[in-house]
Amino acid sequence: MSIPMTLYLPIAGNSVNILAVLGLGGGVGLLSGIFGVGGGFLMTPLLMMMGIPATVAAASDSNQIVGASTSGTLIHLRLGNVDVKMGVLLLIGGVLGGTLGVQLIKILRAMGNADFCIAITYVLMLGGVGSYMFFESLSSMRKAKKPAPAKAAAPAKASGYARFMAALPFQMEFRRSGIRQSALTPLFFGGLVGVLSAIMGVGGGFIMVPVMVYMLRMPMHVVVGTSLFQVLFTCINVTIMQAAENHTVDFVLALLLLIGSAIGAQFGARIGRRLHGDQLKVYLACIVLLVMFKMLYELLARPDVLLAAIGGH
């Protein structure tokens, strides 16, 4: 008798190869451990290629991220890379923003142009964030090699935005990040990412990370740990909502992905620690740009089949 290699998933309504799902989880978990992003933008399309419906793929992936980010947050907590205070403020902002975003998408849907707005926002934002991060970290890597001329430019650059931030009320100390900031800033940016991720239907990790780096000026290593901490709670919320309202969470699929990704995330967190902050940023920028090009290609190339199942985004 041979060991069965496939497993039937009752919610997805299909059977999958166990090893393929474990491997997929491992690969995405590795990325999520290194960069602090959920990896949903990679996982969902790959699961769909295995014959899992889009809605089930996305919801089960959220369930999986709950486990993977628990494991990732744990190791980053031990390494001292989680700014809990910042994370909680971002989370509060995110929940408020997410609620607003869901209402906003309803209005857009009623007006009829929702899909168009979503796709354009997506491509522009990914393109903007990706290229900014890419060139910024490349130039700071060059500056690190030649430290002398960098100092002259720095004070002039910082003035406008930094002075505005310092003038805001409710200033407080974020010891883990080593910064002093108004409590309003993380609330505002958390809310902004919440609105965007509700509209786009993604976890928002790869929008949140650049926001923490450039808008909140947090050090890259703390950004990754704090992002994972925040992603954990966002995905618990999504899992419960999807299970209650749409019945699209396949727990067996999530568990298989989880075993792969939690192990991958452990190695990822260790690899991330060995990389320099600017290197991390360049690699993440490349991934963000890749996703942008993939979306752009999908928008420009004629699809194989001119129909789409409702439920996916």
């Binding site: 486990g67 628990t70 744990l74 419960i240 309202e245 969470v249 999530a254 075993i259």
Partner: peptide, 20 residues
């Protein structure tokens, strides 16, 4: 559905903790 979602989350957290 709701109970299922809560249980799925709890088991995922426990799984993540154990592997961690």
């Amino acid at each position: 559905g709701t109970l299922y979602g809560v249980l799925a989350s709890i088991i995922a957290i426990l799984g993540g903790l154990v592997i961690g």
